[in-house]
Nucleic acid binder design. Structure first.
Lengths: 137, 137
DNA sequence: TTAAAATCTATAAAAACTATAGGGTAATAG
DNA sequence: CTATTACCCTATAGTTTTTATAGATTTTAA
């Protein structure tokens, strides 16, 4: 299951990208427009800022804004930041690899074999979608 | 993340499929061979039986055994029983569809658009893999 | 027929994760 | 200086996952 964190984060990014302007947009406005719990969204936007997707401005007239062009924001990057590993199992993860404690040999593991394919196919999708691709009605 | 339930279930099925015989195999043997908590495995095997993948025999000489040929067991079916929906979001699920409460229009939803592609690519993988495909070393 | 070997059932507890809320701090514009 | 708004920390309720406990039931073999 996709976490709401990821879902909300994607929606927020899409909303910001859909706007003409790149002026700061208040959390409250995003939350209201996308039906998101404002406090929760707050923490999501923060991690998006910390990971180089958004800029922010404090005080009156402050808010969040896209720091890159939508065409340059790949879903692989967004997903890794919001949802974590793309692989469903650590032993097939590119960026978060970890050996399974119980599995003596990955090359003979059926789970490994299947999840490797799933990872590759998901990666293919995420790699071929930018934020811009998700906006077009 | 793939749940351990699914992981263990897959390993158990693979182990049974890898054996020459289709005689009953005790839970204890499967658990030991695959490094799985026996009691947990017990409940997993039970749901696999209830869903038509395994047969069982009680009493001395009892155990679990494959009820179909490995070539006839599709990963789509296994995953749906063990892991649940293949889609990461209910609004793109074929078998477990549900409308998002917050989303006014699915056709304009960026999450929907992305997750639809992810579902399709995962489905493609699961459809083209049978239990037999996961055994071959 | 009895005892042993298994599966079956139910429950619950521990752990981990998810989603949300509250309240205070810091920066900024006017 | 004051209002506004992002930032940051903490807590908590709820859910899901995983494992453990305890026993009931069925089957087989001797």
């Amino acid at each position: 299951m996709l976490s709401k964190k990821t879902k909300y984060g994607l929606k927020a990014l899409t909303y910001l990208a859909s706007l003409e302007t790149r002026e700061p947009v208040q959390i409250a406005e995003i939350a209201k427009h996308e039906n998101i719990s404002q406090k929760f969204l707050e923490s999501i936007l923060l991690t998006l800022r910390r990971n180089g997707f958004l800029g922010s401005k404090k005080g009156k007239g402050g808010g969040y804004y896209l720091i890159k062009e939508p065409e340059d924001i790949l879903m692989t990057a967004v997903m890794r930041v919001l949802e974590g590993p793309i692989a469903m199992v650590p032993c097939v993860s590119l960026n978060f690899y970890e050996k399974c404690a119980d599995c003596p040999d990955e090359n003979k593991c059926s789970v490994n074999k299947l999840m490797l394919q799933v990872r590759d196919s998901a990666l293919e999708v995420y790699r071929s979608n930018t934020l811009a691709d998700l906006i077009a009605s």
